[in-house]
Design a protein around this nucleic acid. Structure first.
Length: 372
DNA sequence: AGCCTACCTGGGTC
DNA sequence: AGACCCAGGTAGG
């Protein structure tokens, strides 16, 4: 069935990939074939990876149990089934046509691949499917009983290998902000400064904006009007700075540098402090020992591991580093990944009725007593 | 070094 | 209704 549908004639309309039938009438994108991604028995839980605070752009559709998001300029739909992880590609910034030889790409993946191979490769890299997560979980469970207790339910939390530009500007938006507002701000950023990729019914998909497009001076006032508040200035100024430092070469140099050096470079950007810098190191620069300490992680640390830190009014640099070092001492070189599992386990949104958050001790104390 | 305050906005609480 | 408070922080004092 899928194979037959795959042979439906495809025409490329600029950057928009539109499927058309022989009469030229538009065909619903539901005709895009599902493909199986070989995850080779690697644990992977989409919900925790895609809505656990690593990325803000993935959308979940309850009715179809599907996730939609954009990785490296391609719009993916993902679905977990008993037969494995299925994916569709709805459109692509640089798409020629499916199964044709790719002549150019910006992914560093050999250009002798077909589009399908390229997309499979993108997803495997994105989910770091080359990393054996089972043995990591075993290792971390041995080292920490709290981790062990959370591991069963929060299996398959994978550290995504994200793109630095999206990662950086998303987390500049995240500071002192709600998830819902962060997501809506990022969507505004994309629809205003990103490139239109394709559409699916009412929904138009945009790529994440380039650094260039965010660097011009008028961006600040535009973003302020769009409700970005004081982050508008940070975004424009950081974009201009990154551009000056050589963008791609700069990001690549940060990947090669030791974690601490990369972090101190990042902190030079306006709107990037220790926490955001650690997010970038961990999520897109391959420094897996980076441990972003936000309010949640501070709560987890102060209530479960470093009780002398309870009740601090602010997380100072010293406290911040103490918490990070503690996790690094405990878990080793991939401490940031391990910490993300705990972070997920502590998120309210992943609470099930009857279950409790790992740092629930505090919640009892800070919550007012319910009157009956 | 630690602590304070302002910063945009929007949603929740009392 | 209108003052709070808080939200996955940062900058400047």
């Amino acid at each position: 069935m899928a194979k037959i549908l795959a042979r439906v004639c495809v025409r490329i309309d600029g950057i928009n990939m539109k499927r058309v039938d022989k009469r030229g009438a538009g065909v619903d994108l539901g005709a895009v074939p599902w493909r199986v991604l070989n995850v080779s028995d690697q644990p992977l839980q989409l919900k925790l990876c895609l809505s656990g605070g690593q990325s803000f752009r993935w959308k979940y559709k309850e009715e179809s149990d599907e996730w939609t998001g954009i990785v490296r300029g391609s719009v993916f739909k993902l679905k977990e089934t008993k037969d494995g992880l299925l994916y569709q590609v709805l459109g692509s910034v640089h798409s020629t046509k499916p199964d044709s030889k790719v002549t150019r790409n910006a992914t560093g993946i050999p250009n002798t691949q077909t589009e399908d191979e390229r997309h499979e490769s993108i997803l495997k890299k994105y989910f770091r499917l080359d990393v054996d997560l089972k043995s990591l979980y075993e290792d971390w469970s041995k080292k920490d009983s709290i981790f062990k207790a959370a591991a069963d339910k929060f299996y398959g939390v994978r550290m995504l290998a994200q793109e630095p530009v999206e990662n950086l500007f998303s987390f500049i938006c995240s500071q002192n902000n709600h998830i819902t507002r962060i997501s809506s701000m990022i969507e505004k950023l994309c629809s205003t400064y990103g490139q239109r990729i394709c559409e699916d019914g009412e929904i138009i998909y945009y790529s994440f904006p380039s650094v260039d497009s965010l660097s011009s001076v008028e961006v600040e006032s535009n973003l302020r009007e769009l409700g970005f508040g004081y982050r508008a200035k940070f975004i424009q100024k950081s974009a201009a700075q990154i551009q000056e430092w050589g963008e791609n070469e700069w990001f690549e140099s940060l990947m090669k540098k030791p974690y601490k050096e990369a972090k101190s470079e990042l902190i030079k950007l306006p709107g990037v402090g220790p926490k955001v810098a650690d997010c970038i190191c961990l999520m897109s620069l391959n420094h897996l020992e980076a441990v972003p300490v936000d309010t949640h992680v501070y709560q987890i640390a102060a209530n479960l591991y470093l009780k002398h830190l309870k009740g601090r009014k602010s997380v100072t640099d010293a406290v911040y580093n103490e918490i990070g070092d503690h996790f690094r001492d405990m878990y080793g070189p991939l401490a940031g990944w391990a910490h993300t599992v705990l972070f997920c386990a502590d998120l309210k949104k992943f609470e099930e009725s009857g279950s409790k958050r790992i740092s629930d001790e505090t919640n009892k104390k800070t919550k007012r007593k319910k009157s009956n």
